[in-house]
Design a protein around this nucleic acid. Structure first.
Lengths: 299, 299
DNA sequence: GCAAATTTGTTCGTATGTATT
DNA sequence: CAATACATACGAACAAATTTG
């Protein structure tokens, strides 16, 4: 037995899916029938299906069946752009990213209009990925608490020194898009940035607010990008399958202010979490074409 | 039955692992004993273990047992830095990234020396993640073939127009680190960049080579970052578990040259693939602290 | 180097629960 | 409510990988 039965079956199905023989949205035979077709037991078929599920090729729905999933049209966000340093601030962060999202959605819609009919009768898993989608954000929740270790480390304060925590959820249409949590040292409040404690949007953006209020200018920022499994909260918010297949991007941006006679000092750290299966990021350096970067495909 | 049995068991184990009750490297009881302990069948225990496996908390080894996996110390790569535009070229690409890797390894080793003994008797899964590790690269393989669609799109050429394909594998010590494939339009060869066809390293880097040889300067580049499941090749090269748990980063960098009276025109596209469970990226904007960015943790 | 013991991997069968139509 | 389809759980047997004696 070179390869286990369930994997032979899975590979066979994978081939059929990738060749388009099984179109996105198509329903597979039910597990019993399917087992008879391949002349194996139901459990073996289930193992094969599980293998495909983990890889995101099919999706099972209790009471309905197993379906081939379509490719998700990714959302592209620009993290940094030499030509427009402000754009970087958008970096998947806060309302500042909305302008880009809106522009992209407009273009996507246009693209779809131009290519209407090309994709023929694809299942609804593919069609109109972002119908009538406007970006929106929840009212921020505000909390004061001791800094967790991973925050204290970034802000150069002690663990359990107090910090202000502002948390927001972002949607595109009714689809959850990102979770964002920013930590500010209490220090900033004492210096007069009292609006940070109020549970309402700071229209101009917190960075600009701090600039106007405290004369605090962000001289630079450092963004870390990592990928990990979602925690329970995230899985629930993003409606991720609980088989742990989809991981999330975690963007950690630390903002620095200039201090006289000192090296740049951190004054905020923002954690942004987005599902890794439907987001892409772009970094522009130097002179690049004007149009927004299109989603990339490889392989 | 609010929650299935196998998940209750998995959650219980997860708690024990995350609280450190079960240390990294620790071996779990075998499946039969374990089943008796929880008073469930072997299959149910296996379901629980599978749940943990998919999330990367434990690892099963046939003939040996199930083990708690330790946290992997991530490799951090700087993708772009305002203060040093050259650093961006390193961006996980080619030999240029070696300097940073080496500096980081040196610092990590020092850090380990300073904190020696702190971690006590942790399993060998954790200790010395990168022992005696020097970055290295294979001799590039060179190929001429028709451009695949996803390349033609980026280089603004026709599908099946010929391109030069240069491919390299990178290691840190004996650990596979990244796979890299760069596509150049045949056009460049005709203009005189014949070294692109030779299967040997271009010491100065191809971008500099093209600058010297063709007076072609890269005026800018656009980097796309996405995450996806590894293909068969990648899984084999990186020794990824075949349960599809670990996904890979795919970095797609398009390099642009200035053309008189025209917008920037693409002259190369590089695909770099790295495992997502042991790599992080950093983007520096403006003025940030001098030291290399430390790996981030969140949650 | 080989054989035995241990441990996980695969496959079958069967029964019952839960979600959807 | 009934039918359909996937989800969970149990039990059993043999295969394959690894370590140990």
């Amino acid at each position: 037995m070179a390869e286990p039965l369930y994997r032979q079956i899975a590979q066979d199905l994978r081939r059929k899916i990738e060749s388009g023989d099984l179109a996105p949205g198509a329903r597979l035979p039910n597990e019993v029938e399917f087992g008879e077709e391949y002349d194996v037991s139901r459990n073996t078929i289930r193992d094969a299906i599980k293998w495909l599920t983990i890889r995101g090729l099919v999706e099972t729905r209790p009471g309905q069946g197993t379906f081939v999933v379509g490719r998700i049209e990714p959302i592209v966000t620009t993290l940094s752009d030499d030509r427009d340093p402000e754009a970087g601030m958008a970096g998947g962060e806060g309302a500042a990213a909305f302008a880009e999202i809106e522009e992209r959605l407009r273009q996507q819609k246009e693209h779809q209009r131009r290519h209407a009919g090309e994709e023929a009768e694809s299942g609804d898993a593919v069609a109109g990925a972002w119908p009538e989608a406007k970006p929106s954000a929840t009212i921020p929740t505000v909390e004061v608490k001791g800094a967790p270790e991973y925050v204290a480390e970034r802000l150069r304060i002690n663990t359990d020194d107090e910090v202000v925590v502002r948390h927001q959820q972002f949607y595109i249409g009714r689809t959850p898009w990102s979770l964002q949590t920013t930590f500010y040292p209490m220090d900033l409040i004492e210096r007069g940035a009292t609006d940070l404690l109020r549970a309402r949007n700071i229209a101009e953006g917190t960075v600009k607010y701090l600039a106007g209020r405290l004369n605090l200018t962000q001289c630079g920022s450092r963004l870390r990008i990592l990928v990990r499994a979602p925690n329970e909260n995230e899985a629930r918010f993003f409606c991720l399958p609980d088989d742990g297949r989809v991981s999330v991007f975690s963007l950690v941006r630390t903002g620095y202010e200039e201090r006289a006679g000192d090296s740049p000092y951190p004054f905020r750290v923002t954690f942004t979490v987005l599902p890794a299966d439907r987001n892409q990021f772009v970094i522009n350096q130097g002179i690049v074409p004007d149009e927004l970067a299109a989603p990339a495909r490889d392989q």
